[in-house]
C-alpha cells in the first residue's frame, strides 16, 4: 500500500486516528503494566509490601526499591528511545499502585477483612517522578541509572515515612513494648505467616546505632543503580522492531 492509498483521507482525520491510537496504546500499556509489574512485585517484594509490620528501617528500605526499579527502567528505555517520552517510570508506578490498591482493598480487606491500615502498599511515586525528570533533562541512560537510581533508592524511606510514622508509635501491651505496626501483626491473625517468617531488623548494620535507615537507603540506592542498568537493557530488547526478510 502506498502513501496515496492511506486509510485516512484528510489531515484532520489522521490526527483523530493518531489520537485514538494514543488512548488505545496507553490504556493497554497501563493495563499490561498493572498485571505484569504487579505480579513481579508480589513475587519479589511480597510480604514487605503487604504488611505494615514488615515495613522496617532495614530490609523493607533495602528490598523494595531494588525489586521495584525493574519495570520503570525497562519502560523508560522503551518510551524514551522510541518516543522521547519521559513518563515511563511514572506510568509503571501508577499502574502498580492501582493494581495493588485494587488487590489490597478487594482481597485483603473485602475478602479476608484485614484492616486497610495494615495492608496498604508502599508509595513509589516520588522516586518515579525523579527518575523520569532525570532521564528527560539528561537524555542519558547512564546518568539516569546513576543519579536517578540513586534518587529512587534514597527518596523511598522519606517518601513513605509520613504514611508509616503513626504506626511506629510505641505501646505497652501485656508487659511488653510493641510498635502499633507490630501489634497489628499480632492482633490480625495471619495463619499462613508465622512470626518467624517476618524478616525485619535483621542484618549486620549494628555499628550505625539508630541511624540505620539512611545507611540502608544508600545501600539500596547503590543496588538500584545496577538493577536499573540491567533492566533498561531488557526494555531495549523488548522494544526492538525486527523485520522478516521477504523472499
Amino acid at each position: 500500500m502506498s502513501a496515496s492509498q492511506s486509510a485516512v483521507r484528510s489531515r484532520a482525520e489522521a490526527v483523530k486516528v493518531s489520537r485514538t491510537f494514543d488512548y488505545l496504546i496507553i490504556w493497554t500499556l497501563f493495563m499490561v503494566l498493572i498485571g505484569g509489574y504487579h505480579i513481579h512485585f508480589m513475587l519479589t517484594g511480597g510480604d514487605w509490601d503487604f504488611w505494615s509490620d514488615w515495613k522496617d528501617r532495614r530490609l523493607w528500605v533495602t528490598v523494595v526499591p531494588i525489586v521495584s526499579i525493574t519495570f520503570p527502567a525497562a519502560v523508560q528505555a522503551m518510551a524514551w528511545s522510541r518516543y522521547r517520552l519521559p513518563f515511563g517510570a511514572t506510568l509503571c508506578v501508577l499502574g502498580l499502585l492501582l493494581g495493588e490498591w485494587i488487590n489490597r482493598y478487594l482481597n485483603f480487606w473485602g475478602w479476608t477483612y484485614f484492616p486497610v491500615n495494615f495492608v496498604f502498599p508502599s508509595n513509589l511515586v516520588p522516586g518515579a517522578i525523579l527518575l523520569d525528570v532525570v532521564l528527560m533533562l539528561s537524555g542519558s541512560f547512564t546518568l539516569t541509572a546513576v543519579l536517578g537510581g540513586m534518587a529512587w533508592g534514597l527518596v523511598f524511606y522519606p517518601g513513605n515515612w509520613p504514611i508509616i510514622a503513626p504506626l511506629h508509635i510505641p505501646i505497652e501491651y501485656n508487659g511488653m513494648m510493641f510498635t502499633l505496626a507490630d501489634l497489628q501483626g499480632y492482633h490480625y491473625v495471619r495463619t499462613g505467616t508465622p512470626e518467624y517468617i517476618r524478616m525485619v531488623e535483621k542484618g549486620t548494620l549494628r555499628t550505625f546505632g539508630k541511624d540505620v535507615a539512611p545507611v540502608s537507603a544508600f545501600f539500596s540506592a547503590f543496588v538500584s543503580i545496577l538493577i536499573y542498568f540491567l533492566w533498561h537493557f531488557f526494555g531495549n530488547w523488548f522494544s526492538q522492531t525486527r523485520f522478516v526478510q521477504s523472499t
Binding site: 528501617r57 510514622a165 511506629h168 508509635i169 510505641p170 510498635t179 507490630d182 525485619v200 535483621k202 539508630k210
Partner: peptide, 10 residues
C-alpha cells in the same frame, strides 16, 4: 506530629 517513634520489635 509523631516525635516519639520506635523501630519494629522482633
Amino acid at each position: 506530629k509523631y516525635p516519639v517513634t520506635t523501630p519494629l520489635q522482633a
